[in-house]
Design a protein around this nucleic acid. Sequence first.
RNA 1: GCCAACGUAGCUCAGCCGGUAGAGCAACGGUUUCGUAAACCGUAGGUCGAGGGUUCGAGUCCCUCCGUUGGCUCCA
Length: 646
Amino acid sequence: MSTTSTQKLTLQVAGREQPLEVAVGSCAFDWFEDYPDLPKDAVAIRLDGKVIDLKRPVEAGEQVEFLDWADPAGREVYYHSCTHLMAQAVMELFPDAKPTIGPPIEEGYFYDFDVPKPFTPDDLAKIEKRMRKKAEQRIPVERFEMPRLDAIGLFKKEGNPYKVEVLEELEDDTVSFYKQAEFTDLCRGPHIPHTGYLKHFKLLNSAGAYWRGDEHNPMLQRIYGTAAPSKEALEAYLHKLEEAKERDHRKLGRELDLFSIHEEAGPGLVFWHPKGARVRNIIENFWRTEHYRRGYELVYGPHVQRENLFRQSGHLENYKENMYAPMEIDGSNYYAKPMNCPGHILIYKNQLHSYRELPIRYAELGTVYRYERSGVLHGLLRVRGFTQDDAHIFCRPDQLEAEIQGVIDLADYMMRAFGFDYKLSLATRPEKSIGSDEVWDFSIAALRKVLEGLGRPFEVEDGGGAFYGPKIDVKLVDALGRDWQGPTFQLDFNLPERFDVDYIDSDGDKKRVVMIHRTVLGSMERFMGNLLEHYKGAFPMWLAPVQVKVMTITDDSLDYARQVRQRLLAADVRVELDDRNEKIGYKIREAEAQKIPVMLVVGKKEASDNLVSVRERGRVDVGTMSLQEAIEYVQSKAAAPAPDTV
RNA sequence: GCCAACGUAGCUCAGCCGGUAGAGCAACGGUUUCGUAAACCGUAGGUCGAGGGUUCGAGUCCCUCCGUUGGCUCCA
């Protein structure tokens, strides 16, 4: 192809000193011959910012990058091609199937098929086997184009309404297809040059999935899979999945005897065992102290409230499908509360408030009940009864910015106290919303200003707010790098209107209050689940339900061991004594399994000299010290994180 | 709610083509009194999630229900 008459193109390669001299109309795949140093494991190139196939002829351009697995875009190509390989295998094995969409996702890919019968686990094995065969055959993947209208006609003839729908939504006149052997799919690409690139992949599971995620649409069958550039990387990924199972809060909750959920009592309803309740109490006490310190007032509201209240708040109108059915008492209906806000408004409205009193901040560890669809319940993370760390701030417009600043400071402090990193996002006005432009613009500007002042990146979700106000979401990032819904701060332009929530301003006029809903931990249940997975059940000292386990070598030192326990109890240490007639290795094994941070071993030697042998969780033998020293050692590690800002 | 898989002793799991339930750990009773992740011997423990059906016979097959798990907005 490098004949002298062809026109040349000069391309700069990132990280390569010499530019490439290539023929106009040649493709990246050809360049490997002339430039052996180019990365042969690349799966696509980025030409002036656009990701294209290795086999796509290049007519013009300046900058080129070779994309391999290390590049997110390269990884997408790999996943995407792998899902095409899967679709090819499925279409060969199940000719009745209609392919729909199959994108790459975070750590793999899926493909949705409309099939007469759902796939069985056996089917997945067969599909994967066929994929392997297809990969070995190194089938060329060819790209071609077609006018969009022709493509619509084609799929209409084929009887595939899904592809037709996708095509009808596109705006381009021409669309691209990729063909490998008999399998052809409408696809934007790019793709690998041939199926031999795909060597290490695995199908993970299949599940029903509604077309476009809408339950009014037909249910398709989705197959999830993953892939990796090497056997080791694939195994590492599968190992990571196993690791995540080890951290599962449901497993840890059972093993550490923290909580349980019972069919007899109802799905999604949590029982906190003594040890779980202890951790929860520590968190709640920490939370209460911090709230008083920051000028919140703590309140309590009843768990059931009259129908009229929820009619006025609009919950019965807009939220009824999430509410438990009413109970009739003395001729009127009562509902289990799904939210705490109406109650806090009643407290606020119990008297008139001067502008001088604001802001008023009511906080409550408020237990609410919400009907969640059975399919979405999940351990502690999605339940039907839970205790929110809720608060409502009533303030003047000129206080909004400072109040938002205050809740962000509080959230930041809490997240750091519990060891979480976090990400921020701002959700702005959606299409369907209430309130004037002026109020929305003012509020969003205030939220944005506070966020910008943090010097931290934040995302903006345009139109992601609720109909009644914009919000800031905080996502916590746990030890495995997973995101969880954490604190949220939500402005509300609706409830103050519905309830006439006012204050008397300096000019003597009634003015409408600005209302902020906010939570920093979310709910005690979900937060406990997040904490458990984050720490893998190994709580830091200040949260550990049992901080110290005293254990005897033989019964001879029992009396002394009881004294040790008494001394620790007197020093407010959460301590248990293992006085069973068992070998020390057995006791340690059990204490390790229970993830108790400190073990104090006492035998004859210690008893005679008022000593204890200290062992820390995770095979760390700290050595022998006096009982008094040990108490100080434990106390030094047991303090709650100090408040650094008020 | 929908799709699929699963539900056997407190826990983890075995139980083939239907013949009437088994292991390890935990519990309990003994023996042992022992220095940093499992001492030994023994005992007890199950209406096999619930209900119905098929069958001479069901943990195993079928149906209904309950629960659990994974998935159901990541636009060719």
